[in-house]
Amino acid sequence: MHDRFEDIDYWKAIILYGLNAATYKIALGKTLLELTKHNNESLEWSTLAKAYLDNYINRLSANPLPQQSNPSRRTVMERITTQLRLGTITYEEALGMVEREAFNDVIPRFHTIGVNKLMGAEKFYHFDHGKKLYLHDSLFRIHESSSGELYKELDARWSLLEGAFQMGHDNWDLANDIREIYIKKGTERTNITGNIPFLNGYQGNVCFYCGEQMAPSDIHVDHVLPRQVVMHDEIWNLVLSHSLCNLHKEDFLVGKHYLEKLIDRNENIMGSNHPWKHKISASLGATKVARAKSTYYHYENVRQVLGNRYWENSPTYNRATDPFYKKLITQLNNKP
């Protein structure tokens, strides 16, 4: 069944749909990509430990943020890097601790997609615990074709996990008038371009409106429901598009086929167990049915404000050929 998916689909599913109570899987993904560039088919455990430790040292040296969801605990890597920073252990001692303590869970569980241990099993490596990691051709292929994109996604996800681990819940007051609801719930317009790597993976790396690939220099973050009405930058309403598609859409109301796609994209995020899914759940509802209903509710509210000023779609868009719907992550999270 899954033979039709590409290596990069499995990688993105593994990274985007990890349970991620901590940052271990993200750090290991980045470490694997970094070590793959040396073209060695096997890695000594000590080599893996050094690259893994260096990633955490670089990550936590300037502005250390929490690396797991439980505020009363610290991860193994936080404890090791803290001791190293305080001078209570040497770098060599830290390496030994990483080799012994840091990989017991993440190495065996890296390939798990959500809670499914079989779908991606040994796709990118197999290992002899405590001794060697053996890299597979699939890892070399995605590094050669897409390493820049994957590095950006890993960095973005690491940052978003850290932020989510210390993120508080928003409290909003509602008003009676439709426009006032969105104004009261709204925020000042902020720079939302930092969401690009995060959104790209869940969107399938194509323009939301035309379904074509986007060049890194031509990616815009767009509000599906116009910001002039909703007055917020919540993630559930943000998508990526070409500048031209964004320009053509302007602040018109999209056709309902795009609203359906927005609902499906949000279910991709919900299926990932990323901490930001709780923000979507808080805004739209705890179940798939409730979230769809809420999204249509917002859509109808915006229609009342803007009237029937529709932008149906990009001239080249065809849902039947849209790569978004062919991606492993979309098919996993949007089953009937």
Rank of each mutant, 00 (worst) to 15 (best):
Q213C: 01
S243I: 09
E212R: 10
C245I: 06
D222W: 13
H274R: 03
N200C: 06
A286C: 05
M214S: 06
I219P: 01
K261A: 02
K249M: 05
I235D: 02
G211D: 03
H274D: 12
H220E: 13
G255Q: 11
L262T: 02
P275W: 01
V239E: 09
L238M: 15
E250H: 12
N268R: 07
D222C: 14
Q203E: 11
R265W: 00
G204C: 10
D233K: 11
C210A: 05
I269D: 04
N195A: 11
W276Q: 13
S217G: 11
L259W: 04
F198D: 02
G255T: 12
E212L: 14
E234P: 00
N246T: 12
M270E: 08
E260Y: 02
S283H: 12
H220W: 09
V230M: 11
I235T: 11
N205Q: 08
Q213S: 09
C210G: 03
K279F: 05
K256S: 11
Y209N: 06
F252M: 13
N200D: 08
N205P: 05
G285H: 12
T193I: 01
N237A: 11
W236L: 02
V230I: 15
W236P: 08
Q228S: 15
E250D: 11
K256I: 14
H223V: 07
Q203Y: 09
W236Y: 14
H274A: 08
D264K: 06
V229K: 04
K279C: 03
I196L: 08
H257W: 00
N273E: 04
G271P: 04
K277M: 13
W276D: 13
D264F: 03
Q228L: 14
P216Y: 03
V230W: 13
Q228C: 15
A282Q: 11
A286G: 06
H274V: 05
T287A: 10
N195P: 01
L244T: 06
G271N: 03
G271D: 02
G255A: 15
F252C: 14
H242V: 04
Q203G: 10
N273D: 07
G201L: 01
I263C: 06
S283I: 09
P275I: 03
N200H: 02
E267R: 10
D233N: 15
E267P: 03
V221T: 14
M231C: 15
I196S: 04
M231T: 13
Y202V: 02
S217H: 06
D264Q: 10
H223K: 08
Y209S: 04
E234I: 05
H278E: 09
L284G: 00
D233C: 12
Q213R: 10
I269A: 04
G194W: 05
S241Q: 05
G194F: 03
P226L: 10
I263G: 02
D251A: 15
G271A: 07
L259H: 08
G285F: 06
E234K: 12
S241C: 14
D218C: 12
G204K: 03
H242S: 09
N246G: 12
R265K: 13
L238P: 09
V254T: 07
G211Q: 06
K277T: 06
Q203W: 10
D233R: 12
V229S: 07
V254M: 07
